[in-house]
Amino acid sequence: MSLGFAILTALLAIGLLALIFGSILGFAAVKFKVESDPLVEQIDHILPQTQCGQCGYPGCKPYAQAIADGDEINKCPPGGDATIKKLADLMGVEAKSLDSAHGTEDVKKVAFIREDECIGCTKCIQACPVDAILGAAKQMHTVITDECTGCDLCVDPCPVDCIDMLPVKDSASSWRWDINTIPIKQVG
């Protein structure tokens, strides 16, 4: 009888404890709920938005979706190692080196149309993922440099190869203090 009573007490006590802790946890989950974007949105914000498709998906958002669904994080050449590192942080996986099958990290470039060669075919306009090319049929086209993401997608459709990808020039405001003569040595 006393044994049964002891077991009963123990069960009751454990049950009560479980109830208390459960309610505390439940309360905490509601009270301290962290509002955050859905994962895809977060990934999309890390991606460079060049919409270049080098990852094999038709834009950054689809790739973000693919990453969320478990695709590799190292398929974005424009983002390079910095983006991979951020993605790795976000996804809680190991950072890898860039998958060279999708291209290599390059200096930032923008498209430039050699305007006297342009025949006004509008093919590049259709190809541009961010509507950064201005022009109309049989009229010369031009690139809005500020809007160009350097995705390269307009180069191939051009029937007369009049689009060049030019590296973005350094200016005093974007200068990164690379005084290379300062000896910054490593010491123990």
């Binding site: 938005q49 834009g59 993922p129 809007e147």
Partner: peptide, 12 residues
């Protein structure tokens, strides 16, 4: 810039 690009891409 990338935000702007995203917006333009989505609008397109």
């Amino acid at each position: 810039k990338s935000d702007k690009a995203r917006e333009r891409f989505e609008k397109r």
